[in-house]
Computed example of a mutant assay.
Amino acid sequence: MSLSSGLNNGLRKCKIMVRVIIALVIFVQASLCITSMQVIVRVVYHNNVAKRHHGIDFTKKAFISMLISTLHLIAPSAVRVTTDNNSIPKGTFYKDLKNGRIASHLKRKSVIVANHQIYTDWVFLWWLTSTADLAGKVYIILKKSLEYIPILGFGMRNYKFIFMCRKWEQDRLTLHNSLGVIDANSRGVGPISGRSPVREDADGEIFWDTTSTNARQESWPYCLILFPEGTNLSPITRQRSFNYANKIGKTPFENVLLPHATGARHSLLKLRPSLDVVYDITIGYSGVKKGEYGEALYTLNNVVFKGESPKLVDMHIKAYHINEIPIDDEQQFSDWLYDLWAEKDRLMNVYYEKGTFDLDPDPDHTITGEFKISAYPFFSCVVFINSLVCLPFLIWYLLR
């Protein structure tokens, strides 16, 4: 190795390290500031549920704004969105002329179902909601252990994320009550509007008025992000999926895991009174080849400390009205979901072969842009909390 190449390599590593240090400082300080703002919102608006909800939603938007802005600093990516024009009007996604970012007209009450490849799939889907200014309205179903992460766990509980322990008897009650509140609030008949449940069963199931909508109350949008596979694709989970498929007499998939219908069906049933649309999203990551695993390539260590991220993230989106989905029949819904995943498996085969889903541009609208988001929400949180911290010292200095 020549001296110049050695210096260039060392300089490159130094630049990466500087970016990582800056990103970590931003992440830690912003997380503390966002959590502090949540505490302030809960205290100040203790008796005003609607304003408290608005405040927490702002901190939710601030968190994803901070996370995406940090990732853009250390490991920038681009996103290519394709939409099925038969179910999503052409022009739903477009370039915002003011800032050059991708924007959209996504429906305001939706469920997203997607294949699960890497641990940060949810970040890209959360970004997708931000294109329609819905980043503060996102709800994610997560495994129970994440609830106890210091600081972040407290924030996620404030966001009303849904934590599952993967024991259906317990998870059924959690889903029923959590989604029931989301649905009731979206129709103006929930706790934010000062309403109470119509009844509560002995086992703790809470029921809201599902027959009416209060037009005089504010409507609260939502987007529930679901991964019916339950976990991301890996050698271990692929083998488990193969075994389970053979056990129930289904053909196993090559590129995706077998989806689990129970939780997905229960979620759609609970949200049916208010749900506008179900978005079916297939995600592909550049750099991942057939037989490889995105979760092994784009690890947290590789992304944060090496700046290695997918240069291009592909998302293909189709939309389904709730009346098109056979949720009232358990077996029919299971078959419908299996067929949905079979199409994802086919699309992923094409993706691994060509580096794109290779969709006909006439029936499928395509738009490409940077994986970016406005930094205003998290910047506002940081400035506000830092101002509160500095204020006593400023007053002391002026009065001494």
Rank of each mutant, 00 (worst) to 15 (best):
Pro221Phe: 01
Ile281Trp: 09
Lys60Met: 02
Leu32Met: 09
Glu295Thr: 02
Gly188Phe: 06
Gly307Ala: 07
Ala245His: 02
Pro326Arg: 11
Ile64Phe: 12
Arg265Phe: 08
Tyr352Ile: 11
Asn349Thr: 13
Leu275Tyr: 01
Ser178Leu: 00
Leu269Cys: 09
Gly6Val: 10
Asn177Gln: 07
Lys250Met: 15
Gln332Leu: 13
Pro363Ser: 07
Lys306Ser: 15
Met164Gln: 01
Pro361Ala: 07
Leu258Met: 15
Tyr352Lys: 12
Val41Ala: 14
Val123Trp: 14
Thr231Cys: 10
Thr282Pro: 06
Ser193Ala: 15
Tyr320Asn: 01
Gly55Asp: 10
Ile141Phe: 11
Tyr293Ile: 11
Pro197Glu: 11
Trp396Thr: 04
Leu32Arg: 02
Asn185Ser: 05
Val79Ala: 06
Tyr279His: 07
Arg216Asp: 15
Thr70Tyr: 07
Leu275Val: 04
Val39Ser: 14
Phe154Ser: 04
Ser196Pro: 00
Asp57Gln: 13
Met1Leu: 06
Pro89Glu: 11
Val138Met: 03
Thr251Asn: 14
Ile16Pro: 00
Ala135Glu: 14
Pro361Tyr: 09
Asn255Ser: 08
Ser104Arg: 03
Pro228Ile: 12
Trp220Val: 15
Lys13His: 14
Leu7Tyr: 02
Ser77Met: 14
His46Pro: 00
Val277Trp: 00
Ser267Glu: 04
Glu169Ala: 07
Ala319Asn: 04
Ile68Pro: 03
Asn9Val: 05
Leu399Tyr: 09
Ile317Met: 13
Arg216Pro: 00
Leu268Thr: 10
Val79Ile: 15
Ser387Glu: 02
Leu233Thr: 06
Leu312Met: 14
Asn323Cys: 11
Trp127Lys: 12
Pro273Ser: 01
Ile327Met: 05
Ile141Arg: 02
Asn301Gly: 03
Val382Met: 09
Tyr222Met: 07
Asp203Thr: 10
Gly194Phe: 06
Arg166His: 03
Tyr45Val: 05
Val41His: 09
Leu24Gly: 08
Ile102Cys: 10
Val43Arg: 15
Ser77Gly: 13
Pro310Ala: 10
Ala264Gly: 10
Asp171His: 04
Ser87Ile: 02
His176Lys: 04
Leu275Lys: 02
Ser334Asp: 08
Cys165Val: 04
Lys247Arg: 12
Lys306Glu: 14
His316Gly: 01
Leu125Glu: 06
Ser267Trp: 06
His321Pro: 01
Asn177Pro: 11
Gly307Asp: 12
Glu295Gly: 00
